[in-house]
Simulated assay, not measured.
Amino acid sequence: MQIVWEYRQLLLGGVRITLIVTVLAAVVAVLMSFASGLARESRHRILRVPAIIYVELFRGTSLLAQLFWLFFVLPSFGIELPALACGVLAIGLCNGAYGSEIVRGALRSVPRGQREAAIALNYSPAQSFRLIVLPQAARVMAPLFGSLFIEILKASSLVSLITLPDLTFQAKNIILVHLNTTAVLSTVLVVYFVIALFISGGAQRIERALSRGVDHTAG
Rank of each mutant, 00 (worst) to 15 (best):
residue 137 A to T: 08
residue 145 F to E: 06
residue 175 I to V: 14
residue 151 E to L: 11
residue 91 I to F: 03
residue 168 T to V: 04
residue 118 A to G: 15
residue 82 P to G: 00
residue 12 L to K: 05
residue 132 I to G: 09
residue 22 T to G: 12
residue 166 D to P: 11
residue 90 A to E: 05
residue 103 V to A: 02
residue 14 G to Q: 02
residue 144 L to K: 01
residue 152 I to K: 07
residue 98 Y to P: 05
residue 103 V to S: 11
residue 187 T to E: 12
residue 8 R to A: 10
residue 218 A to Y: 14
residue 120 A to Y: 03
residue 100 S to R: 02
residue 33 S to Q: 07
residue 17 I to V: 15
residue 68 F to K: 04
residue 92 G to D: 05
residue 98 Y to F: 15
residue 106 A to W: 10
residue 27 V to I: 15
residue 59 R to E: 02
residue 131 L to M: 11
residue 16 R to L: 13
residue 132 I to N: 03
residue 101 E to T: 09
residue 133 V to W: 02
residue 160 S to V: 00
residue 105 G to M: 07
residue 73 V to M: 06
residue 19 L to A: 12
residue 79 I to A: 14
residue 139 R to T: 01
residue 101 E to F: 10
residue 218 A to P: 03
residue 25 A to N: 00
residue 17 I to K: 03
residue 44 H to P: 03
residue 194 V to Q: 09
residue 191 V to D: 10
residue 98 Y to D: 12
residue 98 Y to W: 11
residue 90 A to K: 07
residue 40 R to P: 13
residue 11 L to P: 10
residue 111 P to N: 12
residue 20 I to C: 13
residue 38 L to C: 11
residue 106 A to V: 08
residue 162 I to G: 03
residue 155 A to Y: 09
residue 139 R to H: 08
residue 210 L to V: 00
residue 108 R to Q: 15
residue 48 R to E: 11
residue 38 L to T: 00
residue 111 P to L: 11
residue 25 A to T: 02
residue 103 V to W: 12
residue 143 P to G: 04
residue 170 Q to F: 01
residue 26 A to M: 12
residue 218 A to M: 15
residue 32 M to D: 05
residue 54 Y to C: 02
residue 147 S to A: 14
residue 51 A to W: 01
residue 128 S to I: 04
residue 142 A to K: 05
residue 130 R to G: 06
residue 150 I to P: 06
residue 152 I to V: 12
residue 94 C to I: 06
residue 194 V to W: 02
residue 61 T to Q: 02
residue 34 F to W: 01
residue 140 V to W: 13
residue 180 N to E: 15
residue 162 I to E: 09
residue 45 R to P: 03
residue 116 E to N: 02
residue 56 E to C: 09
residue 89 L to C: 11
residue 190 V to Y: 06
residue 157 S to R: 05
residue 207 E to Q: 05
residue 163 T to A: 15
residue 150 I to E: 08
residue 206 I to W: 04
residue 185 L to T: 08
residue 31 L to Q: 01
residue 21 V to F: 05
residue 27 V to N: 03
residue 85 A to H: 09
residue 138 A to V: 00
residue 7 Y to H: 15
residue 61 T to N: 09
residue 206 I to D: 08
residue 93 L to H: 00
residue 72 F to A: 06
residue 204 Q to T: 01
residue 203 A to P: 03
residue 191 V to K: 08
residue 120 A to T: 13
residue 56 E to A: 01
residue 179 L to P: 08
residue 35 A to H: 00
residue 183 A to N: 14
residue 138 A to Y: 07
residue 106 A to Q: 10
residue 63 L to P: 10
residue 91 I to R: 07
residue 64 L to F: 09
residue 103 V to I: 14
residue 127 Q to K: 10
residue 214 V to E: 06
residue 148 L to W: 01
residue 185 L to C: 11
residue 163 T to N: 13
residue 169 F to S: 13
residue 196 A to K: 08
residue 103 V to D: 00
residue 191 V to Q: 10
residue 161 L to P: 00
residue 215 D to F: 04
residue 15 V to W: 12
residue 105 G to P: 11
residue 101 E to A: 14
residue 102 I to D: 11
residue 24 L to N: 04
residue 121 L to E: 09
residue 2 Q to M: 02
residue 197 L to R: 07
residue 78 G to S: 14
residue 215 D to C: 00
residue 204 Q to C: 10
residue 49 V to K: 02
residue 13 G to I: 05
residue 154 K to A: 00
residue 15 V to T: 14
residue 36 S to T: 15
residue 173 N to L: 14
residue 219 G to K: 05
residue 85 A to D: 01
residue 183 A to H: 13
residue 131 L to S: 07
